[in-house]
Amino acid sequence: MSYEFRWSVLWSGQSGAWLLQGLLTTLAISALAWVLAAALGILSGALRTVPWRPLRAAAAFYVEFFRNVPLLVWMFFWYFGVPPLLPAAFRGWLFDHGAEFWAGMFALGVYHGARMSEVIRSGIQSIPRTQFEAAYAMGLTTAQVYRLVIVPIALRLIVPPATNESLNLLKNSSVALTISVAELTFQTRQIETYTAKAIEALTAGTVIYLALCLLIAGVMGRVERRFAIPGLIVRGGA
């Protein structure tokens, strides 16, 4: 009646190839979604602090709308809701070329962009107002003030919470299996289907996610040290 472990299911048969495929898909969808999330997050996070109300309102709408609806719903939205709006010819092509991957990527990117936005906004708002004034006083336009001074400072301040969000994004990429994206969690389930060894398969998935998360945290830690503002961030140890 007790469970019999058979760890060999993870390296016998096609398991290894499936895990690798799942890992690559997870990395691809997460990396693209991360770029999108970062771009949207920086843009909307910055817009939430500009001295022009309609832009602030638009950015606030984006953030509240996207982060307050569950990611699963956004997966369905991008996969089922968006294609009918596309021209029929393109739609057919898309369905043959990874529609689920792109839908999942947009769902993840746009959802996490809204969450990233709050991180960026809090970074910007922690910069003293006089820093803005000094930048404006040189004759920079608002766009330049943000691009050259404020956003670069904010980004250096928010590496720790942004790391956190990035890890969430990676883990949330598994929600894409609901729209048939064959990512890592999907593949661990696949192994389970073939071998009926649930615990081994889930453990393999868990260990890979854990390794990825530690890797990302490590890389972000290096980025943080490399770009730290001299004198502004007091670091323990390192």
């Binding site: 003293p128 006083a137 400072i153 503002i229």
Partner: peptide, 21 residues
């Protein structure tokens, strides 16, 4: 044109406000 004006008027603040990065 405020950016043009400001490029022709320099300002120094009490709190220096250099760009730390």
């Amino acid at each position: 044109d405020m950016p043009l004006l400001r490029s022709r008027v320099g300002m120094v603040f009490q709190s220096f406000n250099l760009f730390p990065h």
